[in-house]
Design a protein around this nucleic acid. Structure first.
Lengths: 346, 346
DNA sequence: CTGAAAGCGCTTACAG
DNA sequence: CTGAAAGCGCTTACAG
């Protein structure tokens, strides 16, 4: 079913009165081929619209020029933005990407991991899923280590205890600190943290940095002001609702991502709380939603292009057996919008 | 660089004291292998965590079990939603997907098309880009026809004059009619159409259905109420701005997609026009944004899962050389939200 | 049931 | 510069 026609280098060779090797040479362009023959071959290639079978080539060359990308959900703007940049960078270096949505399932994730290896991808970019488990199961760790025996891999914004993989991550901790700074400078003394999932490292890290920083600044916060029921807009609504029902509320909330921020803002509005008048809100990831959702959400940008560039560079370096730094950190920055403002003390 | 270890069927065979053919047989499971040998081989496979080289297998079998997906921009929720469903359906049938973002460039699109063929994908799903050009260049048409000689292809929500490809499309025309019905029943007599791009079939079709339907219903509309400057949120802002500056405005606008609707609503709001109080707005595609962007946007849903299912079924059917209907139409439906309401005549 | 052989479509040392 | 040969890692008729 691959090629209905099934033209090969051999047909071309025969018709051009040369050897298959010669056809191959004009195809790769690495060795010179003398003129009468060269044009004859080229003409036949055009005539048949011949496309060399890259699998056969890959088999011999032991490189497929394919990269696998494993992620939880392409629907999430955070991932679609990264994927686009990864693909762009990969293409520039001659690689084609296999996209694998694990749909939040560890078993699909594992299947994809093995599938990619069987398909001989030259390297894998791994995002989300198991590499963000604060306490991954042994099975998950083993699956990863087995994969690493077969293929170079770069983990993006994640890591695993007991797995010696290269990682590229954005400085989310600093993002959190900057956000708190910003709110602090706006006069906020009480801040909450909404969204995410306990046991997921990207949440756990943000929470612990949040605690530290609040303490350092001598700001008060209550455990009840930290509430994490997920990453979706609906989660933001739920977590905001929780806050609304407390006797004492913070004057500002950090949200784990832009979706949660949006959900929270919707719920605040529903209960008559103005954002930013009554409560300031920040997001995270700086997706296009942060820009466009009224009143515009202050958010932390991951420097997507830099992140993708470093990721692909590291992976391709590993593919070429070059030494690469074990962990690269990409700076983040805060994009300020209208969802937070000065807090007027009573 | 493919496998650092490079364990093959031959090593396993030697160590298990059987022929490579026998190893292959336990791998594929199609032929029975007698017991002492079978377990020995299986044990070795586990020991080495051996993964058969699918490229080699594909080379012999002449099927790669890979599908290519070509689309303009995965960042757009419309595409990411479709891709997710396509991938799900493909996976169910044992296919892995190669994702190709053309980034709105015809030349990248063409490169990908050829790349996918070289990589021996068993089939291609084509979305957006050239198949939505109302008047594609000859070059674009030829590129498509040449590709079709090599590989089965299904076009989603598009087609090309002079290209005999199978298509699956959603009933966008009916979506437009339903939207107009809805507004009409709400008492709107004057309706505009915002967003899109002249020369792109998905726009051109909507515009012409819009004209027809308005005429049929005896509704007035002015050419100046149709304004198309793109598909982005910014385009929605621009097109709304255009409307705002006219002396006479319609009481409702259809927007080409949810992004445009969002941009338009932002701009209306900025100029003190309430949605839906002063002007009703509808979107298209029913992405999650339509649900969550206040006040909630009435939009047309493409039945994404059905669309993806039919697409993959058709493509896989073609791969198996089965006859398939040339054009499948998936019904659309309107999801009603708060962005349109009764029009109060003065 | 199982092994030896051929073949999938390429590319590259190896000799000329 | 160019051809014959070997090999990439599999799978499946073909004989036993």
């Amino acid at each position: 079913m691959m090629k209905k026609d099934g033209v090969t280098i051999y047909q071309i060779a025969k018709e051009a009165n040369v050897s298959p090797a010669t056809v191959s040479r004009v195809l790769t362009g690495k060795t010179n081929v003398r003129e009468p023959a060269k044009s004859r071959v080229q003409a036949l290639i055009n005539k048949y619209n011949f496309k060399p079978n890259v699998m056969a080539r890959s088999l011999y060359l032991k490189q497929s020029k394919m990269l696998g990308i494993i992620l939880p959900d392409i629907d999430h703007p955070f991932y679609s933005m990264i994927v686009k940049e990864l693909e762009r960078q990969a293409l520039e270096k001659g690689y084609t990407c296999l996209l694998c949505n694990s749909m939040q399932s560890f078993s699909i994730e594992q299947n994809y991991l093995e599938n990619l290896i069987s398909r001989q991808v030259d390297g894998i970019v791994f995002l989300g899923g198991r590499i963000n488990q604060t306490h991954p199961t042994e099975e998950l760790v083993n699956g990863m280590n087995e994969a690493l025996q077969h293929v170079p891999m770069v983990l993006v914004n994640g890591k695993m205890e007991g797995v010696e993989a290269h990682t590229v991550r954005t400085d989310e901790a600093n993002g959190v600190r900057r956000l708190i700074d910003l709110l602090y400078n706006h006069g906020h003394q009480t801040i909450g943290l909404l969204g995410g999932e306990v046991g997921v490292s990207s949440t756990d890290e943000k929470v612990s940095v949040f605690r530290e920083t609040m303490e350092q600044k001598g700001l008060t916060f209550k455990e009840r002001w930290i509430h994490s029921s997920g990453y979706s807009i609906e989660a933001g609504e739920r977590d905001a609702m929780h806050l609304i029902h407390l006797d004492e509320r913070p004057t500002a909330v950090l949200c784990i991502n832009d979706f949660v921020a949006i959900g929270a803002m919707k719920m605040f509005k529903k209960f008559g709380l103005k954002v930013p008048g009554d409560i300031s809100v920040t997001g995270f990831d700086d997706t296009y939603l942060a820009e466009h959702f009224p009143p515009g959400v202050t958010s932390v940008n991951h420097n997507y292009r830099k992140l993708a560039k470093k990721t692909i560079e590291t992976l391709v370096g590993l593919i070429h057996s070059e030494d690469q730094v074990k962990e690269s950190v990409i700076p983040t920055y805060v994009t300020v919008r209208h969802s937070c403002e000065e807090w007027q003390h009573d």
